[in-house]
Simulated assay, not measured.
Amino acid sequence: MLCFVYASLRKADTYLWLTERDDFEQLPETLQQLLGGLRFVLELELDEQRRLPREDSRTVLANLQAQGWHLQLPPGESHLADARR
């Protein structure tokens, strides 16, 4: 699956993965507000065998397939998970 990764300009080490480039309309408003501006950082082909530094590729793929986006949080930042909804 082709993925597009963006870095949050407001929240350090927080990344947004999308299935379509610049398709921010599908994000919940609370998540958009939390992330602030986004900077494009990477385009990659992702499959279950690809090793990622801090994420499980199967989890990322499942979220991308289910909702069209995945939020990668910094280690220890689980309180942001509520903004995903």
Rank of each mutant, 00 (worst) to 15 (best):
R58D: 04
F24T: 12
Q65P: 00
E48R: 04
L80C: 07
Q26P: 00
L18S: 11
L38H: 02
L16E: 05
T19D: 11
R58N: 06
M1Y: 06
H70Y: 15
T19H: 05
K11M: 06
D23E: 14
S78D: 14
P75Y: 08
T59W: 08
Q32T: 10
T14W: 02
D47L: 06
G37W: 03
L73Y: 03
Y15M: 01
R58I: 05
D56S: 12
L38M: 08
L16P: 01
W17G: 01
L27H: 10
D23N: 15
E45S: 12
L18C: 12
G68A: 13
R39V: 06
A83Q: 08
R51H: 12
L61W: 02
L9S: 13
T19A: 11
D82K: 14
T30N: 13
S8E: 02
V60S: 01
D47N: 15
R10H: 10
R84P: 02
Q72I: 01
L9I: 04
R58A: 13
F4Y: 15
P74H: 09
G68N: 10
S78A: 14
P53V: 13
W69P: 00
E20M: 08
G76A: 04
H79M: 09
V5K: 10
L42F: 08
V60F: 00
D82C: 12
R51V: 14
L38F: 02
C3M: 08
L64I: 05
W69N: 03
G37H: 09
Q67M: 08
D47C: 11
R21I: 11
Q49M: 11
Y15V: 00
R85D: 13
W69D: 05
M1N: 06
P53D: 15
L16D: 04
Q65V: 07
G76Y: 02
Q32I: 04
D82S: 14
Y15T: 01
R84L: 15
H79Y: 11
L61N: 02
A66F: 02
L80I: 07
E29L: 14
L44D: 05
G68T: 12
T30D: 14
E45Q: 14
L38I: 03
H70P: 05
Q32W: 04
L31I: 06
N63T: 03
P75S: 13
